[in-house]
Simulated assay, not measured.
Amino acid sequence: TDVTPTPEPVPVRPLFACTHERYRWLMHHPDARTDADSAWLRDYRRGEEYADLKDLYAAEGIE
C-alpha cells in the first residue's frame, strides 16, 4: 500500500470582481500568492479602501 501523502492542489485563481474580493482570496490562500500579489497587498493595505474595510477584515480574521 502506498502511504505517500498527496500534495494539496493549488487553488484555481478566480477572476475578481473587485479589490476586496482579491484581498480576501489572497489572505485565505497565502500559498498561491505570487511576488506581484505580495506587492499588491502591501500597496492595498496603505490605501483608503483597506482603511475603510479594516474592521470588517478584522472581524473575518484576515487583517
Rank of each mutant, 00 (worst) to 15 (best):
V10E: 06
T19H: 13
D43T: 15
T34I: 02
I62M: 12
R46K: 12
Y44A: 02
R46Y: 04
D35F: 04
H29S: 07
D2H: 15
T1R: 10
K54A: 08
K54F: 13
A58P: 05
I62V: 14
D2M: 09
L56M: 12
R13I: 01
Y44L: 06
V3E: 15
L53Q: 05
W40T: 01
L41Y: 04
D52C: 08
P30W: 07
E63Y: 05
P11A: 07
T19V: 14
F16P: 07
D37W: 01
V12Q: 09
P14A: 01
L26R: 06
A59V: 07
Y50W: 08
C18E: 07
T4E: 08
L56P: 02
Y50A: 02
C18W: 06
D37T: 01
Y23M: 02
Y44F: 15
T1G: 15
A58G: 06
Y57A: 02
S38V: 14
H29T: 05
T1H: 09
D55Y: 06
P9D: 09
D37C: 04
R22E: 08
R33M: 13
Y50Q: 05
Y57H: 15
A17I: 04
A32S: 06
W40K: 06
R42K: 13
S38K: 15
C18M: 08
R24V: 10
P9Y: 06
P11L: 00
E8W: 13
G47F: 06
R45P: 00
E49W: 01
P7Q: 10
A17Y: 14
V3N: 15
W25Q: 04
P30G: 03
T1A: 12
D52H: 14
V10R: 10
G47E: 07
A51T: 11
P7G: 06
E21N: 10
D37V: 02
T6K: 11
P9C: 14
P5L: 11
T6A: 09
